[in-house]
Structure formats: C-alpha cells, structure tokens
Amino acid sequence: MDATPSLIHTFFNPDILAKTAPIVLASAGQTVLLGFLIIVCGIGLGILLASLRYYTRRRTVTALIVGYVDVLRALPPLVLLIVVYFALPYVNVSIDATLATFLCLSAILSAFIEECVWSGIAALAQGQMEAARSTGMTWSAAMRHVVLPQALKIALPQITNRCIATIKNTALGSVIGFNEVLGSAQAASSDFANPTPLTLSALVYIAMILPFVLFSRYLEHRTGSH
C-alpha cells in the first residue's frame, strides 16, 4: 500500500531535491552552452568540408576529407575522448575536460554532418550548379544561394538526428571529469546517499533533448505526407 510514497521518497525526495537542484541545474546551464557551441561549430565545419569536397578536383583533398570522416565515424566517441584527454599529457600537452569534450564532439559531429550534406548535394541534379553559374553567379554565390539551401533541406532530418546524438554524448564528458549534468548529479547522489539527483539529471537531459526529438518527428511526418 505504501510502496508508492516510499518510491517517491527515495527517487524524488523533496528535501534532497531542494538541496541538490541548484547544483544540478547550474551544470545544466553549462551543458546547454557547450552543446550549443558544439552544434554550431560541428555543423559549420561539416558544411565547409562538404563544400570543399564538392569544389575540389584534387584526389588527395577528397581522400583526406573522406578519411577524416570515416575515422571519426568509426571511433566510439568515448574512446576518442579518453585518448585525447589521457594520451596528450604524455607529450606535455595538458587539455582541460571541457575543451576536450568540445573538440572531440565537434569533430565527430562535423564528420557526420559532412556525410549528410554531401549526400544532400549528391542528390541534387548537376544542372542546378551549371544553371546558376550560367546566370553569371560566382561559384561561391551559386553554392550559397542555390546548391546548399536545397542540399541542407534534404539533409535536415539527418542533421537533426546527429544533433540529438551529440547532445546525448555531452554526458560522456562526465567520464573525464567535465562537470556536466550527469557528473554533478553523480557527485550529489553519493554525497546524500540518495538517487534523487540522478532522477533530476535524467529529467534535465530529457527536457533538453525531447524538443529535438519532437522536431525530427514533425519533419518525418511532413515529408511522409507528400
């Protein structure tokens, strides 16, 4: 009969919630800020790489881009994070946990975005670029006003999915000591010997990511109805 109250008392204890919420929510602010920076840089770099791959006629440049993308798609994010954080100090390059998280996740996101945008460009008819150039547009103007807007529209569902994966991966930063939501919740949870901060951290993450998930569902619904 009293199973429900005791469950709530354990997993959502109001006293402990009041004590730990400020700590967990403060790190939520940091996580959101870092996530935003990673998404901006990752998408920017990804679009740049895809454009370069489209522009270049040099085989070596294409091979380098494809190699970069493949390596970052094949390596587990946590492995990259740990290699960067724990291996670099051996050559006297010390890197702090926040910067390591930022660099690794931005690089991984840029690789996936390059792949999405590249397949978006590949799905467009070659005539698009040629027609734009024949009206007198420069290559970069044609890219900015004709090719990329259409390619990005095609790639939008995949880009949204990668952004979701990236925000989820910020939780990995806790493993190397970046004080994001999960890390601070784990610390608070062991301080108070109570799982309430962990419950809160799960809710915070879900609140951060759910809008993106719903947006991706909306996109899927919109394209599905055509």
Binding site: I167, A171, L172, S201, A202, Y205, I206, I209, F212
Partner: peptide, 8 residues
C-alpha cells in the same frame, strides 16, 4: 530517444 545511453 531523449535519454542519453550513459545517463540511463
């Protein structure tokens, strides 16, 4: 889909 693997 909104629940990070590590947090779960």
């Amino acid at each position: 889909r909104s629940f990070p693997q590590l947090v779960l």
